[in-house]
Simulated assay, not measured.
Amino acid sequence: MASRVFTHVLRLIERDAFPRTRKWAWRGLYDTLSRFWRDGDWRFMNYGYAPETPFALNPEDEPERVFIGLYHQAVDGLPIAGARVLEIGSGRGGGARYVARYFAPASVVGLDYSPATVARAERLNADTPGLTFRQGDAERLPFPDGSFDIVVNIESSHCYADVPAFAREAARVLAPGGWFTFADMRAKSMAADLDQKLAASGLEQVFAKNISAGVVRALDAAEARKRANMIKLPVARRFMTEFSGAQGSILYKELKKGGVVYLARRFRKAG
């Protein structure tokens, strides 16, 4: 049953059907997960990325390596030291925490649509100086023009009702010369449409890559940990197998054979 439901959801996303309803449903799902999945060490809600060349991490962060990897590929090489950073769709805050701890920004703000998730992120990451969280809508950002030097968006845009509006908002809150770094998955048939929607930002695209192979490597590396967590939720185990991209799930199979692609993009604002 869970596999059929998840397949149906993927098909709705592929057709871009019922965008407002999907946005409401995603918020409800993440609110529920934040209330009932209370693991103190679960700061990440992404599928991860394992590059072919490992990057440096502190020993205490090694258990989260594959999830941090998706953020590392997004920000590596960007001028973050002393910058004002915004993550749109920050979830439980692990990615924003990584940026705040490793790259010496002036500040990091994590924004998420789900109030329960924002509250959870604040509790999980209270130990990180310069990091704050705020509830808000990616399509109507609650910040003035030019508020940030770096905007990060990881595995969140598939929940949005209006991706062009989000792209325009990301550009609006960027200061001249600022960077917008993006990563998310789509059905292969939707990849060109996604790029067209992101182009609504008016920003210059400077980097584009299909990172699906590295995401599959990350899913494989995280398999044992996911299965261990699922034991705690026997009633929802079938659903969480699909939602988490565990081996054998629809998403895992589609990523592996290329029906779903995971795309990384970087843009820069003139200035």
Score class of each variant (00 low, 15 high):
51 P>Y: 12
174 L>T: 01
142 P>L: 08
40 G>R: 10
185 M>D: 04
35 R>A: 14
36 F>S: 09
16 D>M: 10
115 P>L: 01
7 T>L: 15
151 V>F: 03
146 G>C: 02
22 R>L: 08
150 I>A: 04
172 R>Q: 00
174 L>C: 06
269 K>T: 03
91 G>P: 05
119 A>S: 10
138 A>T: 03
180 F>I: 02
146 G>F: 01
247 Q>T: 10
21 T>G: 12
48 G>E: 04
63 P>C: 11
132 T>V: 06
68 I>Y: 06
128 T>D: 11
210 N>R: 08
258 G>P: 11
173 V>D: 00
48 G>V: 12
217 R>A: 12
137 D>K: 12
114 S>W: 03
72 H>Q: 12
151 V>E: 02
262 Y>G: 00
246 A>G: 03
179 W>A: 10
271 G>I: 08
19 P>W: 10
80 I>A: 11
223 E>P: 02
71 Y>V: 07
93 G>D: 13
92 R>H: 13
241 T>G: 01
34 S>H: 03
164 P>Y: 07
75 V>L: 02
270 A>R: 14
187 A>F: 08
58 N>W: 14
242 E>F: 01
185 M>N: 06
65 R>E: 02
83 A>P: 08
12 L>W: 08
250 I>G: 08
74 A>F: 06
12 L>R: 13
136 G>N: 03
177 G>E: 04
135 Q>W: 03
99 V>T: 11
61 D>S: 07
175 A>F: 03
184 D>C: 10
225 R>T: 11
167 A>K: 07
1 M>L: 14
160 Y>E: 00
